[in-house]
């Protein structure tokens, strides 16, 4: 019996084993979605589509769920999760947008302009940065960025102007987006650098030989050619940003509030709390059935949006690739 384990696998058995592994991965994912959906159902059942809308103070609603105890009435399930959804989308979109911009420019520098010596140092460092645990970024945020924003960027006038709704004391949108960008950009740089390096030299030389400047050759041929990789990088980064909980719960101000762009500069300092951070923070109150169901509902929303994200990403990638017939 034991000896048979050490015999070389026949192709047929190897195929079956690999097939079984692949199928079980899919099964686990499906089971997870089903389980979460079942657990989340009461929350959606009581709120309907207004679950996604805005309304009262989310934090107050979540508090009420804990207080409702083990046998909550239907009212206790009330949740208007818009501020959390909005915070998730806002931080993700801003950080990924900023990150794509930085990653493309940085990659062009690394691949096209940097001398080989610089490149051989920068690329491994970037890969290392991509592996830094997010809680470390959170710590830097709390210890360095938050006090800096509080002391040097927010003035008393701004603090007072919104004091009847929220306190501005450092943590908020600005610090969250900066750290999130810092966290997701290295992985995007890695992907884009790899793609740019793989662009056939002939394309670039061909463009240069047609009397195009180096900058235009890179932008109009190389960057154009790697658009699928840029999309892939953005999707991966969005997934990381969507799911980032600990770091954001440390620096976001942890308040169920929707920052208002029309508040001007204050917008950047306003606190918020994305879905993932909410789940991380509220999970200790999970004994209360209403809260438990709400948290599972949030998890389901996160799961489904990252699913859509990767499906959407691969659709876009396919369209871009069709244009190149590769």
């Amino acid at each position: 019996m034991l000896r048979s384990l050490f015999r070389p696998l026949t192709d047929r058995r190897a195929e079956r084993m690999l097939g079984a592994t692949a199928v079980s991965v899919v099964l686990v994912i499906v089971a997870m979605i089903v389980f979460i959906a079942i657990e989340a159902w009461p929350s959606f059942q009581h709120n309907g589509l207004s679950w996604f809308g805005s309304g009262k103070d989310v934090d107050a609603e979540l508090g009420a769920m804990v207080n409702a105890g083990a046998d909550p009435s239907g009212d206790a399930y009330q949740l208007r999760a818009w501020p959390l959804l909005y915070a998730t989308a806002l931080t993700t979109v801003l950080a990924v947008g900023l990150g794509v911009f930085i990653a493309v420019l940085a990659s062009i520098f690394i691949v096209e302009l940097a001398p080989p010596r610089v490149r051989s140092i920068v690329v491994p460092v970037v890969r290392l940065l991509a592996a830094v645990p997010s809680v470390v970024y959170g710590l830097i945020g709390i210890l360095v960025l938050v006090p800096f924003v509080n002391d040097h960027l927010i003035n008393e006038g701004q603090r007072e102007s919104v004091s009847y709704v929220i306190t501005l004391n450092g943590p908020g949108l600005l610090v969250s987006v900066v750290l999130l960008t810092l966290m997701i950009t290295p992985i995007m740089i890695s992907i884009v650098v790899d793609a740019l390096t793989a662009v056939p030299r002939g394309w670039r030389e061909g463009a240069l030989a047609l009397g195009v400047t180096r900058w235009r050759a890179v932008m109009s041929v190389s960057v154009r050619a790697i658009r699928p990789a840029i999309v892939a990088a953005a999707v991966l980064a969005s997934a990381r940003a969507l799911g980032e909980a600990i770091m954001l719960s440390m620096v976001s101000g942890s308040k169920g509030f929707s920052p208002q762009p029309w508040d001007g500069l204050i917008f950047l300092f306003e606190p918020l709390r994305p879905l993932a951070a909410t789940i991380a923070e509220q999970s200790e109150g999970i004994a209360a059935p209403a809260l438990k169901s709400s948290i599972y509902a949030m998890a389901l929303v996160l799961l489904v949006s990252s699913l859509f994200l990767s499906i959407g990403g691969s659709l876009i990638k396919r369209r871009l690739r069709l244009g190149t017939a590769r």
């Binding site: 056939p200 002939g202 394309w203 030389e205 061909g206 463009a207 240069l208 030989a209 047609l210 009397g211 195009v212 235009r216 109009s220 041929v221 154009r224 050619a225 244009g323 190149t324 017939a325 590769r326």
Partner: peptide, 29 residues
């Protein structure tokens, strides 16, 4: 390089349409 143009050993059309390839240098200049 516009006056002295070059054809390479390996055909290197850009990953775009035929029209865009030919129009490329005109557009860029």
């Amino acid at each position: 390089r516009r006056r002295v143009s070059m054809i390479f050993q390996q055909p290197n059309p850009f990953p775009m349409s035929i029209f865009d390839n030919v129009a490329y240098a005109i557009r860029e200049q």
